[in-house]
Design a binder for these strands. Structure first.
Length: 345
RNA sequence: GGGGGUGCGCCGGAGUGGGAGAGCCGGGCCAGACUGUAAAUCUGGUGCUUCUAGCUGAAUAGGUUCGAAUCCUAUCACCCCCA
């Protein structure tokens, strides 16, 4: 598996590249729809593949480990077979859940003790078992187990947290190289830069992460409530200190404008729950801005789909088509949301 | 045919038996929020108006009273029991 940088823009730092994985190649910059529990909500694999044209999707270690359980997924032949998705899959490590389920866990040097949000049962995640779970699930891209500090965090806490993430990173890598997974194909490991909104910490973390020589370096700990300016500032700083010949993955971002802005800073990969979550609630991101498809004004003057429109994408752009979708099935909103996100590129 | 009961706002429920309510709890609806998904979740609104306030309002029409969602009469609708 490798990342190949094909072109860098002459006006800004935007890049185009290709990422090779065992389940196919990915053109970057790429937006990766999030399928936490082995499904991208509000759509299905057919539309995900054919209409949206997703080249890779995400799964989540935390959720899949709890339900249905990583052993079940492994016995089904891996996540690809379990969910019948033949293209690449990236699994998040559960590090973000350590942050988002803050009230239900305890962090120690060894790992994270947490209570299941489903039944309250106790579980323990360590860098070692999180990597093993991701190996057994069969992810093409395995994320490091990190701690995502909240915003705002004090400098002292951000530094302590970053150092812990670094120590965990070394443990993750050791397990990644030594542990034998059930899958024959190659899997790649991606480390995560932390350091909250502190530039010197981010610089230190970038250097630490870059040393690992992974094809993908991730930027974590952003889009957790900090102002956009801060997010841009830190993203910019990270892309300046991460290797040029490796892919940069900005985790959890985001809004269409965030994505465009960060592409111009040299980010190659994005994921975000926003398009699929919002689509479920009838909110679409389009080239013309946000549309609340459930609003009365969209329901009122329905006109049928324009079959004569030459391209699927321009058909998708027509308001009539959106209204048609609303009337046929609100669920379909998600495809449009993601299609429109992709059309920004 | 006889007897009993119940009727309020888009819907359902609780509550109220002369000093009150444009109230309560659900739902629906309307609007907003959501950034590595504890998210079919969360927040606000939901009679009218000239909106820091005022007006109309408790099935319908009357009556009693200083005052009625509440008491009385008639009508209408629905439910239960008897025949």
């Amino acid at each position: 598996m490798a990342f190949q940088l094909l072109h860098t823009d002459s006006e800004c730092r935007a890049r185009a590249g290709v990422l090779q994985t065992a389940h196919g190649s990915i053109d970057t910059p790429i937006f990766m729809p999030v399928g936490t529990r082995a499904t991208v909500k509000a759509t299905d694999n057919y539309y995900l593949d054919n209409t949206i044209g997703a080249q890779i999707i995400l799964g989540n270690t935390y959720h899949l480990y709890l339900r249905p359980g990583s052993d079940i997924i492994e016995s089904a032949g891996g996540l690809h077979k379990f969910m019948d998705w033949k293209k690449p899959i990236l699994t998040d490590s559960g590090g973000y859940q350590v942050y988002s389920l803050g009230s239900m866990r305890k962090i120690s040097e060894e790992g994270v003790m947490f209570n299941s949000h489903i039944d309250g049962s106790r579980h323990f995640f360590t860098p070692e078992n999180v990597v093993k779970i991701q190996k057994s699930i069969g992810a093409d891209i395995i994320m490091a187990f990190d701690e995502c500090p909240p915003y705002p965090s004090t400098y002292a806490y951000a530094m302590k947290s970053m150092k812990l993430t670094h120590r965990w990173l070394d443990r993750c890598l050791k397990t990644f190289h030594e542990a034998q997974g059930p899958h024959a194909y190659s899997q790649v490991f991606a480390p995560i830069v932390q350091g909250s909104v502190f530039k010197d910490l981010r610089r230190e973390s970038c250097a630490f992460v870059a040393e690992k020589n992974s094809p993908i370096n991730a930027i974590g700990g952003l889009s957790v409530g900090e102002p956009h300016d801060k997010m841009y500032e830190i993203t910019d700083q990270c892309t300046q200190h991460l290797p040029l010949d490796k892919a940069r993955y900005l985790m959890g971002v985001g809004l269409p404008e965030n994505i465009l802005e960060c592409i111009s800073m040299g980010v190659d990969m994005f994921d975000c729950v926003l398009p699929s979550r919002n689509a479920r609630h009838g909110i679409l991101y389009t080239a013309e801005g946000l549309i609340h498809i459930k609003n009365a004004r969209w329901k009122d003057d329905f006109s049928p789909i324009d079959e004569t429109s030459p391209s699927p994408l321009s058909r998708n752009h027509s308001k009539a088509y959106l209204r048609h979708l609303f009337l046929s099935k609100e669920i379909l909103a998600s495809q449009i949301a993601t299609v429109h996100n992709l059309s920004f590129y």
